[in-house]
Structure formats: C-alpha cells, structure tokens
Design a protein around this nucleic acid. Structure first.
Lengths: 187, 187
DNA sequence: AACAATTCTTTACAAATGATAAGAAATTGA
DNA sequence: TCAATTTCTTATCATTTGTAAAGAATTGTT
C-alpha cells in the first residue's frame, strides 16, 4: 500500500489520518493478463492505482476496438468521464500483463471529501493533472501525422513497443495496423 | 455579475459569502471583435466567463493556426493546461465577436480555496465537467472521419456556422479549409 | 515438438485528404 | 461606393491512409 502514498505525495501531502481513511476503502488485487477489470456499460465506481503491470482503456467503434489510453506502473487509471458524470461508461478497462493494483472505492472516496478536505484537494490535483495530459493528447492528435505521433510515442515511453502489441498501439494512434507497419518500415 | 452565479449554481450551490469573495476578485470587461485576451507565452492567470459573445483558444503548428476550442455565451474559457501546471501557455485566447466577459483572477481564486472549501469544490466540479468534454472530444477526433466530425459539430451547435468562419471551423476539425469545402459540397 | 491461432508485414488497389493555384463571393476599410 | 483584402469554392495532382488478401513470424496450447 506504500507505493500509492508515495505517488500521492507528488501531488499533495496528506495526514496519516487521511491515509488511513483511504486505506479503509482500498483493496490490493492481482489479476491475470487480459482480464477485463471493468466492463462496458456500467458506471465507473473504482479508481485503480497500478503497482505493477499495465492496463488500457478501450471502446468499440462499430466492431473495431479503439484504445483510448495506456497506464503503466505508478499511475492511476479510471474512466473519468463516467466517474464524474455518473453515467454508464462506453469504455472498458483491461489489464495487458499480470498486474497488481490497488482498487479505490470511488463512491466511498467522494464521501470522504466532506470530512477530509485534504483528500478532496489531493484528488482534485491528481485529476487536474490527468486533465492536462488529455489536453496535450488532443494537441498531439489534432495536427500531427501518424508518423509524427508514432515517433513521439516511442520517444515518450520507449518500452511500450516491447510490452504492447502493435495492433493496440495502432488503435491508440488512430490508424490501422497495416498503416503502422508501413510507417515502421519507412523509419 | 448575476449570470455567472446562475451558471455556478448548475455545478454547486455556494453561500452569499463565497459569492462576494468571488465578486471581489472578478471584473466585467467588454472587448472588441478579434481582440487577443491572452497572448501566447505567458502563464494563464485568468479564468473568463462569457456573458455575451464568443471566444476561442488557438495555437500555432508551424505557421498554421489551429483552433483548440470555441466557447459561447454562459460558459467558461481558460487555458486549463497552463492554469494547473503554472507553465507558460503555447496557446492564446481570442474573442471572435464583440464580447462581454467576467475575468476572474485565478491566483486569487486558488487562494480562496483555503478559506472557502465550497469554492474549491465548485471549481473542482466545473473543471471535472470540462475534463469530460475533453475526453469526449478525443473520442470524437480519434475514429471519426472529417465528414462525421463536421456533421456532429453542426448538430451540436447549429449556429456556429453563422458565427464562425469556415477557416476556423476547419482548423478546429483538424482539416484544411479546402477539405471542409469538399465535405460541404457533398452534403 | 507440433499444431493452431494470432500478430505482423507486404502488396495492390481504392478512397480520403493535402498542396497548390485560380477564380468567385463576401467582407472590410478608406 | 469602390477598391482591396479576405474568405470560400473548385479543380488538378500528389501523398497518405484504408481495405482486402496472402504469407511470414510469433505466440500459445496440447
């Protein structure tokens, strides 16, 4: 459980009291490669912290799988649009390796906000940061070629190639696997 | 000043006390069409509420202008990625009509968070909502054709065509004006 | 080890989009 | 109002990406 509080510290210091409150609504779980943590169609009620392993959020466009995002060790993954809107999510969370996670009960967490303002602040700062990432991703998609986006991805997280299939990377870049193969062949 | 508190009410009810505190750090301004409210290269220190008129956030890719977002009456516009990271923004805010705004001093606002938890909560909820919009926009860009994105845009906000030049709409859709003309000719 | 299934690459062709240029339409400013 | 500027459309050609199919490479399973 320690790793998550180290992660939290980067955003906002919280008291041992607050840490205990969060611990009480959190559980550590281990899941096997390819497990669907959260299926499509239900409101998101869990925030995951990845201790070890790797996960993605994906959805379907017609019968094509599209990867919205990847999340690696020491990061948080949640379907924020459903978490905040309370609407059922069209997206699923899947683990791509044998993965160890801490699952935080989001409903219980939001209740903690009333009695622990520093917890509210902590998660405000965490999600503000996630918001920044999402804004930057739009900039990245909007006026960069697939080639540029691929090059950017492998410089940003160079080991993604080793850990994620090119099929999933293509769907993340918004292109077909065939198109990604062509790009890779050129470079 | 009333319109902004009506807007706030949709997210979170706050006391008259909190409203007054916000009023004290806000000013109403009127600016002429095409005015640059916030230039590129400075950290974002102002959150705007649009009472009347229309604005956009844009940036440059090489010497090409790209519109990241539009904001209409009764909505908030701010360069969130700079607001939260405190880094200088590569983006500018420009008004596209003669526009009336309420400018909120963001530095002062963030200070209010300590003494008025309900103000912190209010803006948390406002930006959570903006975050949802941004996530949905990625989904919209990532696997929809330019044609689909255009059709979606005009059904979502039908008067945008009357108020914004096609050149800017094209840059928002991530295509060239020439390509947008072709799409419009087909439909 | 051997087979099956999946992933990745390559090829050929089709469709969409970009770049450039030219002209029409609309807007702006003196 | 008239000229100048900007915006919008159309056309042509080049480039990129998609689709479909086939085979190679890899992975998983028994």
């Amino acid at each position: 459980m320690n790793s998550i509080f180290l992660y939290f510290k980067k955003f906002h210091e919280i008291s041992t009291d607050s840490q205990n409150a969060i611990s009480l609504i959190s559980t550590t779980i281990s899941v096997k490669k390819n497990t669907i943590l959260q299926p499509i169609g239900h409101a998101c009620k869990t925030i995951y912290f990845i201790k070890k392993g790797l996960a993605r959020i994906y959805y379907f466009k017609d019968d094509l799988e599209i990867t919205e995002s990847f999340a690696f060790e020491n990061s948080i993954i949640a379907r924020a649009e459903s978490l905040f809107s309370k609407n059922p999510s069209r997206k699923a969370i899947q683990v791509l390796e044998n993965t160890e996670l801490i699952a935080i009960d989001a409903i219980a967490l939001f209740k903690l906000y009333d009695s622990y303002p520093e917890i509210e602040r902590l998660f405000r700062l965490i999600f503000e940061n996630a918001y920044i990432d999402t804004i930057n991703r739009i900039e990245n998609i909007q006026f960069h070629t697939a080639d540029e986006r691929y090059t950017f991805l492998i410089t940003e997280s160079s080991d993604i190639i080793k850990r994620v299939s090119l099929k999933l990377i293509a769907s993340y870049l918004g292109i077909t696997p065939v198109s990604l193969s062509r790009i890779r062949a050129k470079n």
